[in-house]
């Protein structure tokens, strides 16, 4: 009987799966992804977006939901006092953060990848006549769908990091929403010259690049975008790890 990395992951999975809020939030994320994909696919008739872009139009809201899932998991430790039991059992502390991130990230990756494929299949079924249908073999389609799962998985990890960092559910969710939804809006207010350089690197824009089939002038290449977003997540995790290790629980 001793602490093992696998044991800590198993413990975090038990914590994750034994909360009702986990299943509700995950369910909502999948429903948002599929429902918005279908609505957009059925109603949009312009020529600026492809069938895949339309199928994934729920990804912004799904990202928010999945981020909330991670934030609740991380901040919930502190708001409930559970963190004291958790850290008394794992006094080295950092394995808790890594395992929690892994569990939330993989759970979101799996469900959101499935959700993205479902949104594409169902969206294609109801696709507006004005839009050309696409298959999985078509250029970039697989990349966009798998990329959506990866991006949303990373957003869940970002939520965990923010939750463990600020130790408050409301605070973590506010920061998350700010990063994903409000920052891009604010950047648009900057002078054009600055805005054009900065915008592609903003978290949600960088992350979404991997899901876009049609690359605008002002977006990063798909995998570059995802890597930039992963960079933000790593920074958030590092700061959270520092606080976890250095401050009293």
């Amino acid at each position: 009987m001793k602490i093992t990395p696998g044991g800590v992951v198993a413990a975090e999975w038990t914590k994750f799966s034994s909360l009702r809020s986990t299943w509700i939030t995950t369910g909502i994320s999948v429903v948002l992804l599929i429902a918005f994909g279908m609505i957009a696919s059925a109603s949009f008739s312009g020529d600026s977006l492809s069938a895949v872009d339309l199928a994934l139009s729920g990804s912004t809201l799904a990202a928010l939901a999945v981020g909330v899932l991670g934030a609740l998991l991380g901040a919930g430790e502190y708001t409930t006092g559970m963190i004291r039991a958790t850290l008394a059992a794992v006094p080295r502390r950092l394995p808790v953060l890594w395992s929690k991130s892994l569990v939330a990230g993989v759970a979101a990756l799996v469900t959101m990848t499935a959700g993205a494929f479902a949104a594409f299949a169902l969206g294609s079924a109801v696709l507006n006549d004005a839009i050309g249908g696409l298959g999985l073999r078509d250029d970039g389609v697989l990349r966009a769908l798998l990329g959506a799962g990866l991006y949303l998985g990373l957003v869940a990890v970002l939520g965990v990091a923010l939750g463990m960092l600020v130790r408050s559910s409301a605070g973590a969710i506010a920061i998350l929403a700010g990063l994903l939804l409000i920052v891009p809006g604010l950047a648009a207010l900057l002078p054009d010259s600055i805005s054009e350089t900065v915008t592609p690197y903003l978290p949600s824009n960088a992350g979404s690049a991997v899901m876009a089939l049609t690359q605008g002038d002002n977006t990063l290449a798909p995998w570059t975008g995802l890597a930039v977003f992963a960079g933000y997540v790593v920074v958030a995790l590092a700061v959270a790890a520092f606080r976890l290790k250095k401050t009293d629980a």
């Binding site: 009987m1 034994s18 909360l19 809020s21 430790e77 039991a85 059992a89």
Partner: peptide, 23 residues
């Protein structure tokens, strides 16, 4: 202070702690 999540059952709470050590 109580160190447990109110949303978990007693069994899940203990299981989560037990798993860290393979108990």
């Amino acid at each position: 202070a109580r160190a447990m999540h109110p949303g978990r059952t007693a069994v899940s709470h203990l299981l989560a702690l037990a798993r860290t050590h393979g108990i």
